[in-house]
């Protein structure tokens, strides 16, 4: 007959044993004890039954259609994000180059030159305002984790 305190010590290790998460030494200790102790052997069976019972629960499955829509939606969001990034980045580069060329060009009509500069600066300010507003809206959006 084995000592009661030995059983208490071994109890938690029974779970580790079921899950194959014990070191070799601990595993052997459990096996030797269980071989000689009917109480712990019964306890081991009981814990195994719990594992089997929960493992066999029929938890509802996600249907294929919902999953497909989910994947498409998520991947479309990121693709759209990359698209916007390229569009805005490219637009800024082209505009910058155009302004640079324009400022260097010789012209006899300074009024037209400064008028056009004002026009483009205005356009840029508007664009920034729109982007800022979108970013603020995104903060309250539940999909804020997506980077654009």
């Amino acid at each position: 007959m084995t000592d009661r305190s030995d059983c208490d010590e071994i109890d938690e290790l029974l779970s580790g044993h079921i899950d194959g998460e014990l070191t070799q030494g601990a595993r052997q200790r459990v096996e030797i004890h269980v071989d000689g102790c009917a109480r712990c052997a019964a306890r081991l069976d009981e814990l195994k039954a719990v594992r089997a019972g929960v493992g066999a629960l029929p938890i509802a499955q996600l249907d294929r259609e919902t999953w497909r829509k989910m994947m498409n939606d998520a991947s479309a969001r990121t693709t759209r994000g990359i698209g916007w990034l390229l569009l805005i980045g490219g637009g800024i580069a082209v505009l910058g180059f155009a302004i640079y060329e324009f400022l260097l060009a010789e012209t006899d009509t300074p009024l037209l030159k400064w008028g056009l500069i004002a026009f483009y600066v205005g356009l840029g300010v508007l664009l920034l305002a729109v982007i800022r507003q979108r970013m603020l809206a995104r903060k309250t959006d539940r999909y804020k984790d997506v980077e654009i």
Binding site: M70, M71, D73, A74, S75, R77, T78, R142, Y143, D145, V146, E147
Partner: peptide, 9 residues
């Protein structure tokens, strides 16, 4: 859905 979006992020 949120977790999937995060995975693509």
């Amino acid at each position: 859905q949120d977790a999937v979006v995060r995975a693509f992020g």
